[in-house]
């Protein structure tokens, strides 16, 4: 099987890799670029644990081929914190205990940041529908929703 050479940008860094045409972006991030923050919960786009941003658009990295990353700009959970400073969402998720096992957390953080970047004042219903593609089996979503609403309120105050 001939490999494909891909040049892309991940969390601001220029990256080159080769991959099999069947490898997904998620496979590439985890197995070739050692970025294991994005998780495979289903491989079929149903759970959102692999959520990443591609050219500022929220996608499931399991539903995109690694080969398609050519020339794109990719952002993962690993790029959320800036140096020692956690993103406000990360702080609030810890503060509100918006995670139990934590496997869905990277995907939910990436998805939520995408929401707040687009809509700084979402209603609870808007948050719930935006996150409908991010399954969490531990929390019943209650504390996740609270953490998101609280972060949004803080960010609005700060801006």
């Amino acid at each position: 099987m001939s490999m494909i050479h891909v040049s892309t940008t991940v969390n601001g860094d220029e990256v080159d890799f080769v991959c099999d045409p069947r490898e997904t972006l998620l496979d590439v991030l985890r197995d070739r670029l050692a970025l294991t923050g994005a998780k495979e919960g289903c491989g079929t786009g149903d759970c959102g644990a692999c959520s990443v941003m591609v050219d500022d658009r929220l996608v499931c990295s399991c539903l995109m081929l690694g080969a398609e990353a050519e020339g794109k700009s990719i952002a993962t959970v690993e790029g959320l914190a800036k140096g020692e400073d956690l993103h406000p969402l990360q702080e609030k998720f810890i503060e509100h205990a918006a995670l139990q096992c934590g496997i869905c957390t990277p995907g939910i953080l990436v998805a939520t940041k995408a929401l707040l970047d687009k809509n700084p004042d979402p209603t609870e219903t808007e948050v719930r529908y935006w996150l409908a593609g991010n399954l969490c089996r531990c929390t019943g979503y209650d504390k996740i929703i609270r953490a998101v609403m609280d972060t949004a309120a803080d960010l609005r105050k700060a801006s």
Binding site: G45, V59, C60, L63, M64, L131, G133
Partner: peptide, 9 residues
């Protein structure tokens, strides 16, 4: 059709 993520694709 699908989630926010699916809508992106």
């Amino acid at each position: 059709v699908g989630s926010t993520q699916i809508q992106g694709r």
